[in-house]
C-alpha cells in the first residue's frame, strides 16, 4: 500500500503537498481558461479572424505530437507505479523515457514553428497566429518547467532518495505533468481541427 492512499496527518487527510499541487493546478486552469475564452470570443465574433486551411496547419504532425505527449503521460504514471512498488530502476527508466518524449515534443514543435512561419502564420499575421503562438508558447513553457521538475526527480531517484514509503514528489510531479498533457489535449483540437 503506497503513501498516497493512506490518510495523511492533516485535517483533510490529504497531504499538504498534494493539496497544494491541486490548488495550483486550479489556478492554471483559470489561466488557460482566460486565454481560451478570449479565443472563443474573438474566433466566434471577430469579423477579421482568418482561419488557415487544414493543409497549412500540418495536422498529421501535430497528431503525432499529441501521441508523443500522451505517451509521456503514460510513462510518467508508470514511473509512479514503479516506485509505489519499490522498483527504483523502473522509476528511473520511466522518468528518462518521459524526459525523452518531452524533448521529442519540443523538437517537433521547433520544426513546426518555422514551417508555419514560412506559410505566413506568424504571431502578428492575424488573430489565429497570435492565439496559436501565445497559447502553444505558454504551453511549451510549462513543458520546459515540467522537464526541469523531472530532472530534479531523476537526480533524487539516482541518489536513491525515493522508496516505497517516501516518494510524494514523484506523485505531485505526475499530477503537474498530466495537467500539461491535458492542456495540450484541449489545445490540439481547438487550433488544428476546428
Amino acid at each position: 500500500m503506497s503513501d498516497s492512499h493512506a490518510m495523511a496527518d492533516t485535517n483533510t487527510g490529504i497531504p499538504s503537498g498534494k493539496l497544494g499541487m491541486w490548488v495550483f493546478l486550479a489556478s492554471e486552469v483559470m489561466l488557460f481558461g482566460g486565454f481560451i475564452s478570449s479565443y472563443v470570443i474573438l474566433r466566434t465574433g471577430s469579423t477579421n479572424f482568418v482561419v488557415p486551411g487544414k493543409e497549412m496547419l500540418g495536422v498529421p504532425l501535430a497528431m503525432v505530437n499529441t501521441f508523443v505527449l500522451i505517451t509521456s503521460s503514460v510513462t510518467m504514471v508508470l514511473a509512479l507505479d514503479a516506485i509505489e512498488k519499490g522498483n527504483v530502476k523502473g522509476l528511473i527508466r520511466n522518468l528518462i523515457f518521459t524526459l525523452i518524449l518531452a524533448a521529442c515534443f519540443l523538437g517537433i514543435k521547433s520544426y513546426e514553428y518555422p514551417h508555419k512561419w514560412h506559410e505566413g502564420i506568424t504571431i502578428s499575421s492575424g488573430l489565429f497566429g497570435s492565439f496559436y503562438y501565445t497559447l502553444t508558447g505558454l504551453h511549451m513553457l510549462h513543458v520546459v518547467g515540467g522537464m526541469a521538475y523531472m530532472g530534479y526527480l531523476l537526480r533524487n531517484a539516482l541518489a536513491g532518495r525515493y522508496t516505497v514509503q517516501s516518494h510524494a514528489r514523484v506523485e505531485y510531479a505526475g499530477l503537474y505533468w498530466h495537467f500539461v498533457d491535458l492542456v495540450w489535449v484541449i489545445l490540439f483540437p481547438i487550433f488544428y481541427l476546428l
Binding site: 489556478s27 489561466l31 481558461g33 486565454f35
Partner: peptide
C-alpha cells in the same frame, strides 16, 4: 484570488503582446 487573478494575468499577457 485563486480563481480571479489568473484571468487578469492572461489578459495582461495579451496586452503585453
Amino acid at each position: 484570488l485563486l480563481f480571479a487573478f489568473p484571468v487578469l494575468q492572461a489578459a495582461a499577457i495579451l496586452q503585453l503582446l
